[in-house]
């Protein structure tokens, strides 16, 4: 995209959001919508400014749960995928189990985690881990095996070593697939952590939304959601940035 086009886009996006907020503000004031039903943006901004340090504390709790769950899913997902493509025993046991689990609402297990590992941060991490794991395993397996059969032949004509094939071909080939999975998995991990907090939280943004709700403190709930959006966008941005840094060679065909 040329520089002029990019500036034009930024301008359009800014105008869109400014207008949306202004219309929202005007509608709430004009129709005199009560604050517990739907607060005006100006009101939410006040709460954001006022409750800054409390919000930051809860955000950090949720962020920590999300990152730990996601990191665990990343490590385990990669190891599972590598194991599944190399050992037929895992391909016949672990893989079908994962596929089975994947077609099932994993969040339904969340209450059980409380019984098994308590109401602390661990059960939220477990939740985040569980929902983030599947896209990583499935995509990673694809990335390790889904390549031109002639490329495999070219390498096989030089060496039959699985080690060579893995390090020189399969693993680097899988990285774009892994990053695509991470973009999904990081958002999934946030969902997992939030649901965990809904069920048994004393801290975190999920807990905050729920407790604000029960007190009809809708502006506070909106504020918590605002922080949640910022956090999710931030995490997503980190994944995109890591992809840009690690895969300078990766080039998608420009969209038609």
């Amino acid at each position: 995209m040329n520089e002029g086009g990019r500036i034009g886009r930024v301008v359009r996006i800014t105008i869109f959001y400014t207008v949306t907020l202004l219309v929202w503000e005007a509608l709430v004031r004009f129709l005199q919508v009560p604050e517990w039903l739907f607060p005006a943006p100006s009101h939410i901004i006040d709460v954001i400014a006022d409750k800054n340090s409390v919000m930051l504390f809860h955000t950090l709790v949720t962020l920590q749960e999300t990152i730990l769950g996601f990191a665990l899913a990343l490590v385990m997902g990669i190891l599972f995928a590598i194991g599944i493509i190399h050992f037929s025993i895992l391909r016949d046991t672990l893989y079908p189990t994962l596929i089975m689990f994947n077609s099932f609402p994993k969040i339904a297990i969340a209450p059980l985690f409380i019984i098994w590992i308590g109401i602390g941060i661990e059960s939220k991490i477990a939740n985040a881990f569980l929902v983030a794991l599947f896209p990583i395993v499935i995509n990673m397996i694809m990335g390790l095996v889904d390549m031109d059969p002639e490329l495999l032949e070219l390498v096989r004509a030089m060496s039959r070593s699985r080690w060579v094939l893995f390090w020189k071909i399969r693993l680097p080939h899988s990285l774009p697939y892994l990053f695509a999975a991470c973009k999904m998995a990081v958002s999934f991990a946030v969902i997992g952590a939030i649901v965990g907090e809904f069920i048994s939280g004393r801290t975190g943004l999920g807990y905050l939304v729920l407790s604000a709700n029960s007190q009809f403190n809708t502006p506070l709930a909106f504020t918590a959601l605002f922080y949640l959006v910022l956090m999710s966008l931030g995490l997503y941005g980190v994944v995109i940035l890591a992809e840009k840094l690690m895969l300078p060679w990766y080039h998608r065909e420009p969209a038609a």
Partner: peptide, 19 residues
């Protein structure tokens, strides 16, 4: 089986895109 003294070129370049 595989051997060192053969070079192969297919119709597709089959380059490693990360290298």
């Amino acid at each position: 089986g595989p051997r060192r003294d053969i070079g192969i070129v297919f119709q597709k370049p089959l380059l490693l895109e990360w290298r």
